[in-house]
Structure formats: structure tokens, C-alpha cells
Amino acid sequence: MLISTDDALQAYLKQILAQLESWLMAGQISKLIMAINSKETRETIERWQFDIHVVDTKDENGGGAPPPPKSEKAIHAEIAAIIRQITASVTFLPMLEEKCTFNILVYADNNAEVPTTWIDSDPHYIKKNSEQVKLRSFSTDVHKVDALVAYRLENEL
């Protein structure tokens, strides 16, 4: 696995993750998206979408005993499986031949608390010729994450 050594990137990610944590704990987040955009055309080429279903612990209507807590090992195994899939997705994803940047988007509740450093954004749709592949999902005691990658096909049409 590759880990970035760019300080700026790490700072950026750290900022995002700190905010994410607070949103996650409040259960005000539904999606986390990493969009890869073309630098030239500003088009979104790849869109990694992680649907987050926060398990509502307060919901008692479901009845029945909550499922036994997952062992950390099992969770790690699921995450490892997803990462494996993501790295393997290189085989079917189209090559990124142009210079790209990336952006991270968060689908938050309307009533979520938003710090001033965060601003509204467009959802970075893949405008045309999109294809999507559902990836594995993993779940912890707190939330369930479904992974999905959408990408722009080559200019075949």
C-alpha cells in the first residue's frame, strides 16, 4: 500500500477527517465522495462514492437483541478486502492520461453544523458516458459503508 508523503496533502486529509469524525458521530453524513477531476476540462473522470449508513443506536423499535459486536479483526479483514478491490480496480478503470486533481465531497444532512471552512459544492456528476461498479462493503458497530466507483468511459461513442 502506498502512503502519501506530501505534507500539504496530509494536512488537507487531516482537516477533512477531523470534521468527518464529528459528523459521523452525530450521524449527519450519508456519503463521502472522492472525485478525480481533469485539470484541463474540470470534468469529473472518476467518482469514488462511499455510502455511509450510520447505525442508529437509539432506535429501539427494531426489537430483538442487537447483533453481537464485531471483532476488530473481522472489521480489519473487511476493510482489507475493500482496499484490495480498490487496488484491483486499476485493471478495469480507464487510464488517466491527463493531469488531474481530486476533491473530497461530503453529503451531509441539511441541518448539520457546517464550519466556515466548508462550503457548498456541486455534486461532481460524471456528465456523460458513465459506468459504475459496486464494490464490497464493510461495517462496524457504528456504521456501514458501501463502496461504489463511477467512471467516465473512454470516448467510444
Partner: peptide, 9 residues
């Protein structure tokens, strides 16, 4: 829902 992004992205 609303879509958010970090201003400094």
C-alpha cells in the same frame, strides 16, 4: 442533504 467541500481543496 447538501453537498459540502472543503474550501481549500
Amino acid at each position: 442533504t447538501r453537498v459540502l467541500q472543503l474550501a481549500e481543496n
